[in-house]
């Protein structure tokens, strides 16, 4: 800690000086008490925002309200819950012309879902997170007709960890909540 500035200020304590000292001591005490109270229930790692898939309503706000140009919310695939369906309603538009990967047959506005053949009649569906904008359209399609293996999550390698999440405050399902930073995902549980 640096020394006080050298100046001729070393007068006998004036009334103002006394008041200032008192106020400072009071402020320090208050600050100490406050941090003490907070420390008793403090956490080391803090919190991050996450979407509870059980509350998500697929309203589209995640795509439009994130402070990032491309939302940090992405669709993720719970593979163990996926039916590997040939007719995946999360992949195909409600009324596809044919069951091919042509863009006009796809539900995803950015063609972010990759469909790969596994074995008859199963197909794997994975998300290209560089393309996914988190709109939740596929989540609704999968949930409404299928098993609900698609769901939205905040990807923490992209999230800026805003103090107040801009999507959280417009979420119609109140699905956003702070979760401990050590377990930052709310994954749909895995079938066994």
């Amino acid at each position: 800690m640096p020394n006080p500035p050298k100046s001729g200020q070393v007068n006998p304590v004036s009334r103002r000086q006394f008041f200032r000292n008192g106020a400072r001591v009071a402020a320090m005490t208050g600050l100490g008490a406050l941090t003490g109270v907070l420390a008793t229930r403090g956490t080391a790692a803090g919190w991050v925002w996450q979407i509870d898939p059980a509350k998500c309503l697929r309203c589209g706000n995640c795509a439009t309200h994130c402070v990032l140009e491309q939302s940090a919310v992405k669709c993720v695939q719970a593979y163990a819950q996926c039916g590997y369906c040939q007719l995946c309603t999360g992949f195909f538009a409600p009324e596809p012309n044919e069951l091919t990967t042509a863009a006009e047959n796809q539900l995803c506005p950015t063609s972010a879902i990759q469909r790969t053949f596994v074995e008859d009649p199963y197909y794997q569906y994975s998300i290209d997170e560089n393309l996914c904008i988190g709109c939740g359209k596929c989540v609704e399609g999968c949930l409404r007709f299928g098993n609900g293996s698609f769901f939205l999550q905040i990807r923490h390698d992209r999230c800026l960890h805003c103090n107040e999440c801009a999507i959280a405050r417009v979420c119609p399902g109140e699905a956003f909540r702070r979760v401990p930073a050590q377990s930052p995902y709310l994954l749909k549980s895995v079938a066994k």
């Binding site: 697929r58 309203c59 589209g60 795509a63 439009t64 409600p94 506005p109 709109c135 359209k137 409404r144």
Partner: peptide, 11 residues
């Protein structure tokens, strides 16, 4: 609005 609505109301 929701530009990303999954609209099957016609069906």
């Amino acid at each position: 609005t929701n530009a990303f609505a999954y609209d099957v109301s016609r069906l």
